[in-house]
Design a protein around this nucleic acid. Structure first.
Lengths: 220, 220
DNA sequence: ACTGTAGGCTTACGGTGTAAGATTGTCAAC
DNA sequence: GTTGACAATCTTACACCGTAAGCCTACAGT
């Protein structure tokens, strides 16, 4: 197969960095299930087994790309306004996870958390502590916030929403075959989502987020 | 292989019901990744391809067992106390999902929701509407609550917690290799989780849940 | 110039989901 | 009682997966 002897400068050498980057591109483009060692290698113009010189196995790749995603989070900065600070971080994390719809489930897949993730956790916990929450309270607040971020993200990415028009078509189709008399509230709910959103409205994600933040403020 | 000719009464005939039941048992016992067509067939004393006469393919099995899990949820009953009613349902769903740790990620995997799931959604939405929430508000409340249930469940099942002792060992090991000076709050957080829990304390799940419910009540 | 090694490649193994078709067991109609 | 139909089961096969083991070759250090 290797017709011409390739010399080093004829193609960019592989590297862990390059492998992970290509893996992210592949997952972004075709979903996490399209990320196989063989396809990834192909994308890099290389054979599958060559990847193993830069990455110890597939799960190493998965935690590697999950790590890179977390690095995109905007961490909270020291600020007197803890709510605004945490709010910004939560929204940033949410946005990042939407950009890489495969990432959230990877992060919850139960591998030992990466350094980037630990830094994120520590920063969030630190902000809460600095805001005056007790250790107990900080613990609870952290879990409530992270649950919301992850749960909401997974909810949104779960029904892999295509474009808006496609969503409308899909939703109306769904509506049509729904036993309207049996589940009237569900029908109303779908209509709710079909309604054009007022751009001044708070995004759905922030509704739950603020519910939590306001509740926490009262408990502080 | 089939040394003796089997007659109908020598073994229970297959059925969708029996296949799904066995699939749940297998997933409960060995995790969702141990559920393969061949292993499932083996468990039922049958060849893999025989399953396809009762189930259209593997993803049919997956949505089938996810469905059966949702059927275990305790639905809210009509009640003047909407908070208590929803609270009970949320906690019930959480408990059910913990019993089948593979279920939550399956439910968020983006298949068209099952009838059981739709009924659950409709019941929750109906309870909120009956409590006096506007259509908009009901929509937001629903998503916030479901995000919490799913997110928290996935958080807990994600770090597939073994027994309590194993957890302690794991956590202390984790602590040991944590750069304590770099992430002091994370260290505190882990200690928090190592502390024996006061049985009178509200479970962690309910903390976030009540934060949301109380916040909703104020917005009603 | 010699040699060790790093980074690529080949082959192979046991696993996966499932399409296609052969085989069997059961029962209704004649 | 025989036949035919049909449904359930099994067999075989294919294309994919992750990865272990080993080969080959070009460069780096001495």
């Amino acid at each position: 197969m290797a017709i011409q002897p390739r010399t080093k400068d004829q193609r960019e050498p592989l590297s862990r960095e390059r492998v992970l980057r290509a893996a992210i591109d592949l997952a972004d483009a075709g979903g996490i299930e399209s990320l196989s060692m063989r396809r990834l290698a192909q994308e890099l113009g290389v054979e599958a087994m060559s990847l193993y010189h830069h990455v110890s196995n597939k799960s190493d790749i998965l935690s590697g790309i999950a790590d890179m995603v977390v690095e995109e989070y905007e961490l909270p900065e020291p600020s007197p306004d803890w709510k605004a600070s945490i709010r910004r971080t939560a929204i940033s994390a949410y946005r990042v996870l939407l950009r890489h719809p495969w990432a959230a489930s990877l992060l919850l897949a139960g591998t030992t958390p990466s350094t980037a993730r630990l830094r994120y956790m520590d920063a969030l916990l630190g902000t809460l502590r600095a805001a005056g929450f007790s250790a107990d309270m900080t613990d609870h607040a952290y879990h409530a916030l992270d649950s919301h971020i992850m749960g909401f993200t997974l909810w949104v990415t779960g029904m892999n929403l295509p474009s808006d028009e496609e969503f409308d078509a899909l939703a109306t189709g769904f509506l049509a075959q729904l036993p309207a008399d049996e589940m009237p509230h569900l029908v109303e709910h779908v209509h709710q989502h079909l309604k054009p959103r007022d751009p001044d409205d708070k995004p759905e994600f922030e509704f739950g987020l603020d519910l939590l933040l306001d509740g926490l403020e009262r408990l502080r």
